[in-house]
Design a protein around this nucleic acid. Sequence first.
DNA 1: GGTCTGACTAAAT
DNA 2: GATTTAGCCAGAC
Length: 109
Amino acid sequence: MDAKQKDEFTRAVYDLVMLVPPGRATSYGAIAAGIGHANLSRMVGRAMSGCPEGIPAHRVVNSQGVLTAAGCFSKPGRMQALLEAEGVEVASNRIRNWRRVFWDPVKEL
DNA sequence: GGTCTGACTAAAT
DNA sequence: GATTTAGCCAGAC
């Protein structure tokens, strides 16, 4: 059940990320906790490494609100532009008012 | 099978 | 806010 569980985990991550409302963002740890794997925060990033079209990866940042997923986009700074377009204030690859923008799937969902 | 690295987190300093 | 320490799991070598 190795490959199957991995697929389930990955699918759950994508599904949760797509549920993130516009103008908001969540963290890898929050997603991991939302799917029942609070300690697999790193695996969330590993699963998101695919970054398939349709997944708003720019809404997924680390616990500090830092845009660690910038490498997923064609050019650096693209992620910040997308977030700003949704009303999220970003500075130096870091989300301002992170506490206000943060979306917790466990609490909100 | 062992070791290193990494889109991570939380706590302590 | 920045840095360090320890814990976590999967993939590459």
